[in-house]
Design a protein around this nucleic acid. Structure first.
Lengths: 228, 228
DNA sequence: AATATTAATTGATCATCGATCAATTAAGCC
DNA sequence: GGCTTAATTGATCGATGATCAATTAATATT
């Protein structure tokens, strides 16, 4: 047949993503195949290529929906006047999401074949996730230090993500520890942020005192010092 | 033919892993197939199944070799009497490794099909990576607080890993920022670690002051407070 | 109402994948 | 030299992503 009036193009689009989402939710990304989606919605496999370029395209759209959900959950946490508490809530939100929807969450970060890259709008959606953290940092890092705030938000978010990532890789870390770890990360990092000046000075002294005389001023990058 | 005297069993084992390593290094994990390895070493595909259970088994052994290399690089950084500087060096080492060997590094963390899990000895090799960080934390966290030191090492390592992970996912973060981000993470987290007591007390006051009276004492877990 | 136009849908088909296993063949032993 | 053992082969299977000529239904035109 052709142009069955069963569904409009948009309905079909949603139908495919819906069925794909169910498969991923239940069995993980590895179970997601063109034929299984087609069977689930009662169309044949070729039809899917009318609406999506290839299977990676489907995955990208699924991930976009997941990112939207996650973003919605993050923006739903009450901002609160105190920054640290807000960040703790945001982290808890992120961890809960990853734990409740492990398959969808892991698919977000599964590496694609070398060479391929995701569309731009996809990365914009990932960037959006930093915003709530950035806002929560405003009490600690004033408006004058926007660049620093931007970086700190990304450091915190990446840190939470790293903890989550190792925890979801069952047995590297157990899920039992992640809450305490995330709390440790946030509490100590934010505390460090608060006495930025004193810390910088102390580190200068300590590093300079270790071996050769090296002035470790702002912008100095000891991480690159032993480049290979 | 059979039992060609070309190579012993061990040689063949190494030959397979060597060829597989070259393929991954050059083209990434997606290019690694049984047939390509077999062609590369001049054997037929069936032979590989004599030495490895399946292709995941080959990947696991490749990853083990990568972990050994990484561990070797980490233990090669001079310990140094000062903890923070050592941790900065360790992080630099980790970031450099991930940047220089992106394919091998990313394969370490690629999620396996739902249900499957890696052998125990594999996770032991991952645990080993925490040890140098734990040792470097000894100056800040005395012997009495071993559990705290253990957790902090994992927090730091997971944080660095998270930064690295988002950076390798090209375009979420650029590689240009990671050094500064890692430095920010370590400097601030360690600083927070240093005035643990004062920080805890301050947070108690702030959280208690926000809305309902909640005593946020030690062991309180605000991350789980709004469980779903 | 009949026909032509357009486009959605199909499913056979292709190359490739991981994995299996009967058949083959070489090495070691008596 | 014949026998045993085990390593090696490659055809084969089921399943994958993707393609495309053929089919068919909805719409426009006459």
């Amino acid at each position: 047949m052709a142009r069955r009036s069963d569904h409009t193009r948009d309905e079909l689009h949603a139908l495919i993503l819906g069925a794909a989402g169910v498969i991923v939710e239940r069995e993980g990304a590895a179970a997601l195949t063109i034929r299984r989606i087609a069977d689930a919605i009662g169309y044949s496999s070729g039809t899917l290529y009318n609406l999506f370029k290839d299977i990676d395209d489907i995955v990208v759209h699924l991930n976009a929906a997941t990112l939207d959900e996650l973003h919605g959950a993050l923006t739903a946490v009450p901002p609160g006047r105190e920054g640290e508490a807000t960040i703790l809530s945001l982290a808890g939100c992120y961890l809960r999401f990853a734990r409740n929807r492990p398959h969808a969450w892991r698919m977000l970060f599964q590496n694609l074949p070398s060479g391929r890259s995701r569309p731009v709008w996809y990365y914009r959606r990932m960037d959006r996730l930093f915003v709530p953290v950035e806002d929560a940092l405003r009490p600690m890092l004033a408006d004058g230090r926007a660049a620093e705030r931007r970086r700190s938000a990304r450091v915190l978010w990446a840190g939470i993500h790293g903890i989550c990532s190792l925890a979801s890789d069952e047995a590297v870390l157990g899920w039992g520890d992640v809450d305490a770890m995330a709390e440790s990360l946030i509490r100590n990092y934010v505390a460090g942020l608060r006495d930025k000046r004193r810390v910088s000075r102390r580190n200068q002294r300590l590093i300079a005192g270790k071996g050769k005389k090296v002035r470790a001023g702002r912008g100095n990058a000891p991480l690159e010092s032993q480049g290979k």
